[in-house]
Computed example of a mutant assay.
Amino acid sequence: MKGCLVISLDFELIWGVFDKVDHNNKLEYFENTRKLIPELLKLFRKHDIHCTWATVGMLFNESWDEWMENLPQYFPKYTKQKLSAYNYGKEHKTSINEKLCWASELIDLITQSDHQELATHTYSHYYCLEEGQNRKSFASDLKLVHKLALKKGLALKSLVFPRNQFNESYQDICVNHGIKTIRINPENWYWKNTQRDSLADKIFRTGDAYIGLNDKSYDFSSIQIGKVVQQKASRLLRPVENSVKDSLRMNRIKDEIEYAAKNDKVYHLWWHPHNFGANPEANLKDLNKILEHFSKCQDKYGMKSFTMDELTDLRLNLQ
């Protein structure tokens, strides 16, 4: 088994950060994000990259009227009510620019592009470890996003948990709604509790982006097969900072890709498209350099690019 590069993107627009930012200050940022999607697809086509787009289901809607029609049977009753996308939508639907909220045409563009997998990031950017939510509301969320995908003729087979809140006890619910594989967190201690997200966690995750061992890839045979197939993330691609740290960050990722290629391991790179929104040209330039390096590893070591679903099928066939 040759080295494998997996790329997954958490495609959210405002639904991924509504509890953290003032949307009035983010219009240009998310306008840039929308423009980035075709550019990312061009880069992926240029380098023959297979990519999984874990997409928030609310992006399937095209208006607030449609959003109001597409509500789940059971809502998550978070103790922290600010985490509810439904509360946010009802409060802001008369004031927020709709370009921050919908992306049906971009979803179509993704699904019409070669080697691109549309996956789910739940319907409402659902937080599976927060107090107040439960199995019933999570199942209702997945049922709704499954229904909207079917309207576009899509079968969603991969899932990425929002804020990386992986709830092991929800795997059977995933299976019941057609999910074959999920992305889980790296094994490092500072990725273990993303719900808590302490200062120490943040410091070590940030530092790890620039220095450390090339230990983020893993053996293909270590991919766990259970109720669903669990694929570990390796590296979050952080955006350009226009500082000396950028070269450290880039060299670290390229070294890790080459290490995975040389040693026939899996390397799973992920980010949010909106991470590129503040400086799109520089971020696309850096991504192109990373993908050029992958192409060299492809030629020299036989490394291949996979979507999450493709890697899962390979793992199941070779178990």
Score class of each variant (00 low, 15 high):
residue 158 S to C: 07
residue 174 C to K: 01
residue 191 W to A: 05
residue 139 A to I: 06
residue 138 F to K: 01
residue 151 K to P: 00
residue 195 Q to H: 12
residue 141 D to K: 05
residue 251 N to R: 15
residue 253 I to H: 10
residue 183 R to N: 08
residue 231 Q to W: 05
residue 135 R to S: 15
residue 238 R to C: 01
residue 180 K to C: 09
residue 179 I to W: 02
residue 191 W to F: 15
residue 148 L to I: 05
residue 234 S to R: 06
residue 191 W to E: 13
residue 158 S to M: 09
residue 188 N to M: 11
residue 221 S to G: 04
residue 211 I to V: 15
residue 197 D to P: 05
residue 235 R to K: 12
residue 138 F to E: 06
residue 222 S to L: 01
residue 117 E to D: 07
residue 232 K to F: 12
residue 194 T to Y: 05
residue 253 I to Q: 09
residue 165 Q to K: 01
residue 165 Q to V: 02
residue 134 N to M: 10
residue 219 D to N: 15
residue 244 V to Q: 08
residue 233 A to F: 10
residue 250 M to C: 07
residue 193 N to G: 06
residue 158 S to W: 11
residue 242 N to V: 04
residue 116 Q to V: 03
residue 205 R to Q: 09
residue 214 N to Y: 08
residue 203 I to G: 01
residue 259 Y to N: 14
residue 261 A to K: 03
residue 125 H to G: 08
residue 254 K to A: 08
residue 259 Y to F: 15
residue 132 G to P: 10
residue 163 R to H: 02
residue 182 I to C: 01
residue 145 V to H: 02
residue 246 D to Y: 07
residue 206 T to D: 11
residue 196 R to H: 13
residue 153 G to W: 00
residue 206 T to G: 13
residue 142 L to R: 00
residue 238 R to S: 12
residue 177 H to M: 00
residue 224 Q to M: 08
residue 119 A to Q: 11
residue 145 V to F: 01
residue 213 L to H: 10
residue 209 A to L: 11
residue 233 A to M: 09
residue 178 G to P: 00
residue 181 T to V: 14
residue 245 K to D: 04
residue 221 S to Y: 11
residue 191 W to V: 00
residue 193 N to W: 09
residue 238 R to Q: 12
residue 135 R to Q: 15
residue 250 M to I: 15
residue 214 N to A: 07
residue 141 D to C: 03
residue 207 G to E: 05
residue 116 Q to Y: 13
residue 200 A to D: 11
residue 241 E to H: 09
residue 148 L to V: 07
residue 257 I to Y: 05
residue 123 Y to R: 02
residue 134 N to A: 07
residue 179 I to R: 06
residue 226 G to Q: 11
residue 162 P to Y: 03
residue 206 T to W: 12
residue 248 L to C: 11
residue 176 N to W: 00
residue 117 E to V: 04
residue 148 L to W: 03
residue 243 S to F: 02
residue 199 L to E: 08
residue 194 T to P: 14
residue 149 A to G: 03
residue 149 A to I: 03
residue 232 K to Q: 11
residue 159 L to F: 11
residue 153 G to F: 03
residue 261 A to D: 06
residue 227 K to Y: 05
residue 128 C to Q: 11
residue 156 L to Y: 08
residue 239 P to Y: 02
residue 131 E to W: 06
residue 153 G to T: 00
residue 184 I to Q: 00
residue 142 L to E: 01
residue 219 D to Y: 13
residue 237 L to F: 14
residue 143 K to D: 12
residue 173 I to S: 01
residue 148 L to Q: 13
residue 255 D to L: 06
residue 145 V to I: 11
residue 118 L to Q: 10
residue 229 V to W: 05
residue 128 C to P: 02
